[in-house]
Design a protein around this nucleic acid. Structure first.
Length: 574
DNA sequence: GCTATGGATAGCCTAGCATCCCAATGCTA
């Protein structure tokens, strides 16, 4: 599947064209890129079957882009892209990752100071060259330096949501080998940390050599760091490393425990082992030379006097003490979600009709969904006004009555994602909000506010009797933007008081609330909803990332409102 | 450069905000 690679090139072409201020073309390329990213079929298959004409059937792909796809499939390159890169040899991915830097500024930095990458940029900003460029100033220079600092702190790590599909693909590939008996991801991937350094995979096999040889010859590998009789390490085209270990069958449990970590969790466990006169390592739990436990993780934890600890909890943040007392919560499961409440449809720039989304949701086994399109303040997203909300209601009612006729219990709720304006008011009239099944409200503008102001702004929204859920409550973008300045404890207090639900947004770069804040919310008795915030039904499945975040935050089924069937769910809304 | 409409051409691409420079530009949702 090379769709992602082609999409990436189109995104870069769009950026280059935007740098030259060419109108319309950038968005045409972006649209085609998005379309390829979410295309179920392999573009190569499409081309082989039906040629250029078939490629043109892909939404957003016309004659010219179809030819470029074909060119890439034939030659591995797109000439126009190569030329653009030659003309403006800048690292777009790196530079545009700095918050506040867009095409024009990156062009000006290159033309004025020959800045090609982050290193050049930091050097120039530090000696005060950037401020002297036209349209730049001291303030912008400061913002750039802060942006670079922020990037550095998170360097070399990848988003969980970027890694998981690649790891799943490798796991599936390895499973096809008959020499592979047990297989599992380990490390931070298994703990579902929000960012991942590299991926670890454990396998049991009686023929390690065969497994290793197969592993290092998989497609998509750009470098083999090392390859031995029981382990190998590779780098994928996507830029991250994967380590593989092959073990004998009976060591799987202790090895999985050891390699899942975290380091801090394991250190604490080993201390307990020593206190009990044991020794714990990747080969097992030992008393002297006698093996006490090694086959399964459960066995290892039990032998140490602990209840089983789910991988998502293993960060040495109290889980070991709690497990010693057998008091760990039964955290929410990956199959517990009954419906998704934050979904955008083509009514506001999403890609699918409500009907298509409902179909996809039913296939996923959901009992209900909530359509929550943007409202009018977000003009770029074609936000709905009061009148359009009413029209949408009619469409939803029509679909619901069809479900009733078909004797299906599946239902569509109508919500919206309204905007919390700077003064805390909502951009849709209360009468219109009251007609919806529920209301999500979120901050989408004026993100840089003082702590007191921003806290008051969100609190005012929570006190609105029509607002049920606050979307992405802290506004962070992983590796890119810090949370807003807010008094989160105060937010929790008012959420509890007003029975406002806080969202766990599963969008791969948000995961907002994050684990620590979820744990605080659980402790404060504030209810949460895990939502995908998807603009295309393919992304509904990313809800798993939100569930993992909830699990890392020790949330139980009862803390999450959309684990409940429809009749009980409705009771949570004001 | 794509799509829709009508067969070659129009339309797409907004609003608020910060910053820079004092009216305009670029970024972000």
């Amino acid at each position: 599947m090379r769709n992602q690679d082609i999409a990436k090139i189109f995104y870069e072409i769009a950026f280059f064209l935007a740098m030259e201020e060419i109108p319309f073309k950038p968005s045409a390329y972006e649209k085609a890129a998005l379309s390829l990213e979410t295309l179920a079929d392999d573009a190569e298959d499409v081309y082989k079957k039906g040629g250029i004409k078939a490629l043109e059937e892909i939404p957003g792909v016309g004659e010219s882009i179809a030819e470029k796809i074909a060119e890439y499939l034939k030659t591995g390159k797109i000439k126009e892209y190569e030329n653009l890169k030659k003309e403006m040899p800048v690292d777009i991915k790196e530079l545009s990752a700095v918050e506040g830097l867009g095409p024009r500024m990156i062009r000006d930095l290159y033309e004025g100071l020959k800045i090609k990458n982050l290193q050049d940029l930091e050097k120039a900003a530090k000696i005060g060259q950037v401020r002297n460029l036209p349209n730049f100033g001291e303030k912008t220079e400061q913002n750039i330096l802060q942006g670079i600092e922020f990037l550095k702190r998170t360097k070399g790590r990848f988003l969980l949501g970027e890694i998981i599909p690649a790891v799943d693909e490798i796991l599936e590939n390895l499973k096809s080998l008959k020499e592979v008996k047990k297989i599992s991801p380990a490390g931070s991937v298994r703990r579902m940390k929000e960012t991942i350094g590299d991926a670890d995979i454990l396998i049991t096999s009686s023929n390690p050599k065969k497994v290793i040889d197969y592993f290092v010859s998989m497609p998509g590998i750009v470098k083999i760091w090392g390859q031995g009789p029981t382990k190998a390490s590779i780098r994928l085209e996507k830029g991250f490393d994967v380590d593989l270990r092959v073990l004998p069958e009976n060591q799987f449990g202790s090895a999985l425990q050891y390699f899942t970590g975290s380091k801090e969790h394991n250190i604490a466990l080993r201390k307990i082992a020593i206190e009990k006169g044991f020794k714990l390592n990747e080969y097992g739990l030992f008393k002297g030379k006698k093996i006490i436990a090694c086959k399964t993780e459960e066995e290892v934890y039990k032998a140490l006097g602990l209840s089983y600890i789910e991988p998502e909890l293993r960060e040495n943040t109290g889980e070991i003490e709690t497990a010693l007392k057998n008091k760990l919560p039964k955290i929410v499961g990956y199959q517990d979600i009954k419906g998704d409440l934050h979904i955008h449809s083509n009514w506001n720039g999403g890609l699918n009709s409500i009907e298509e989304i409902a179909e996809a949701a039913q296939e996923m086994g959901y009992e209900y969904i909530g359509i929550s399109d943007h409202t009018k303040f977000l003009i770029i997203e074609h936000g709905l006004d009061e009148k359009r909300l009413l029209q949408q209601r009619k469409e939803i009612e029509k679909l619901n009555s069809r479900f009733k006729i078909l004797n299906s219990k599946f239902r569509i709720l109508q919500g919206c994602e309204a905007n919390i304006l700077a003064d805390g008011s909502i951009d849709i009239k209360d009468e219109a909000l009251a007609k919806l099944d529920y209301v999500i409200a979120g901050v989408h503008s004026q993100l840089k506010m003082g702590r007191k102001e921003m806290t008051e702004r969100i609190i005012k929204a929570m006190r609105n009797l029509n607002v049920d859920i606050i979307s992405h409550p802290t506004g962070r973008i992983i590796q890119r933007r810090e949370e807003y300045e807010i008094d989160f404890d105060e937010i929790l207090k008012v959420a509890k008081e007003t029975k406002t639900i806080l969202e766990i947004n599963s969008s791969l770069s948000r995961l907002d609330l994050k684990d620590i804040n979820i744990r605080k919310a659980v402790a404060a008795g504030v209810k949460m909803a895990i939502n995908a915030d998807s603009h295309h039904f393919d992304y509904l499945r990313f809800l798993n990332l939100g569930i993992s975040q909830a699990r890392r935050g020790w949330a139980e089924k009862k803390d999450i409102i959309n684990t409940q069937p429809l009749d009980k769910l409705l009771k949570f809304f004001k």
